[in-house]
């Protein structure tokens, strides 16, 4: 199912052991981030606010100034180039061209004082040797592809004249105008209503099928993950705690954080008692525990969790989790017995 496990497909983006630290911060904001995406594949990075998922995306796009966020280790190979090593100028040539990004809030990421047609055309003009007329033609074509009704009459609209869903379509049109190899989407549907979210997700999947773009989707919504992902990477407090194929993550969750997160989401099915909760909250950067960062909130935590950071261990086919005590039922068997007996 997943393309990474298929040796014939080469990943288009390979991130390895990425660690980043904000200037003056006592700990790395993200640490040990490794993942790969293949053409046509969708990788979801999931986690709660402050887990570092957006910082990861921004650093790959070269949108974090190096003076602020220092790369402590790692590589991000895009073809034969390391995105983390590229100059600002080289990065600007890639951005919006072969690697592009869409953001959560389409209103603030579109320029309110330019017509949407011009904004899409600008992306094309910046990267391709085309005339203004050709770029405008491409903009029209893209608006059509993202299914904006009566696209030719919308070309000269300003962002404020469009609804939230339409604005996100424009963002997608802009991001895909140059047929990028990688599209990073940071919570693209979080600000939208469910019916509009369904439309946008459907659209993204359809376009991805046509173009073979690799999609890195950042979200906190497990429903969206289940709907769209091929592979999933779960982050907590800047660390990757688990990654694997989507079916394996949902059917065989290993890390206590993944398990806690999944069981604290209410189900749309019939009610099944109180929600499980993860106690406490995400630690601030200056209070990061050493060892496993989930230790203070983990019901299974033992003494050594505070001391040593568990490595990402392979627990199933291309399924890894960073927990000293996974799989949990073999480490805490007496509880399972009690559970079965009650």
């Amino acid at each position: 199912m997943s393309k990474v496990t298929d040796p014939n497909v080469t990943p288009v983006l390979i991130v390895e052991n990425l660690a980043l630290r904000f200037k003056g911060a006592p700990a790395n904001i993200i640490d040990g981030i490794s993942f790969a995406v293949c053409p046509g594949e969708t990788l979801c990075i999931v986690g709660e606010s402050g887990c570092g998922k957006s910082v990861t995306a921004l650093s790959l796009m070269g949108l974090l100034p190096r003076s602020v966020a220092q790369v402590m280790s790692g590589t991000a190979m895009f073809g034969d180039r390391d995105l983390l090593e590229l100059s600002q100028r080289a990065m600007a040539d890639l951005r919006g061209n072969t690697i592009s990004m869409i953001f959560q809030e389409p209103m603030t990421s579109l320029n309110p004082s330019y017509r949407i047609g011009d904004q899409i055309a600008e992306v094309v003009l910046r990267h391709k040797h085309v005339t203004r007329a050709e770029a405008r033609q491409r903009a029209l074509q893209m608006l059509d592809r993202v299914k904006i009704p009566a696209a030719s009459s919308r070309l000269d609209d300003y962002p404020h004249e469009l609804s939230g869903g339409m604005r996100q379509r424009v963002m997608i049109a802009m991001a895909l105008a140059n047929d990028p190899a990688v599209l990073i989407a940071d919570e693209p549907t979080t600000a939208l209503d469910v019916t509009i979210q369904a439309q946008i997700i459907d659209l993204v999947e359809e376009l991805q099928k046509e173009t073979g773009t690799a999609l890195v989707m950042i979200t906190h919504d497990l429903g969206v993950v289940a709907e769209i992902a091929d592979r999933v990477c779960v982050m907590y407090a800047g660390h990757m705690v688990e990654d694997g194929p989507v079916a394996s993550i949902f059917d065989d969750p290993q890390h206590p954080y993944t398990i806690g997160l999944m069981s604290s989401v209410p189900s749309v099915g019939p009610r099944s008692g109180r929600l499980a909760t993860i106690g406490g909250m995400v630690p601030a950067i200056d209070q990061m525990p050493s060892g496993c960062r989930f230790t203070p909130r983990c019901p299974f935590a033992q003494a050594n969790c505070e001391i040593s950071t568990p490595p990402l261990d392979e627990l199933g086919p291309s399924h890894r989790a960073a927990c000293h005590y996974a799989p949990l039922e073999t480490m805490f068997p007496e509880t399972v017995l009690q559970e079965a007996g009650s």
């Binding site: 949902f250 059917d251 065989d252 969750p253 290993q254 206590p256 398990i259 806690g260 999944m262 069981s263 499980a276 909760t277 993860i278 106690g279 406490g280 909250m281 630690p283 601030a284 209070q287 203070p296 909130r297 019901p299 299974f300 799989p327 949990l328 039922e329 805490f332 509880t335 399972v336 009690q338 559970e339």
Partner: peptide
């Protein structure tokens, strides 16, 4: 089955630690 089993385990162990106090203690410390 695996997911169910681990969800139950998570719930069981976190309840045993009196979830409200555990949560509050962490908050207090932080």
């Amino acid at each position: 089955e695996n997911a169910e089993k681990r969800f139950a385990l998570f719930r069981e162990i976190s309840q045993r630690q009196e979830p409200v106090t555990a949560a509050t203690e962490t908050q207090i410390k932080l």
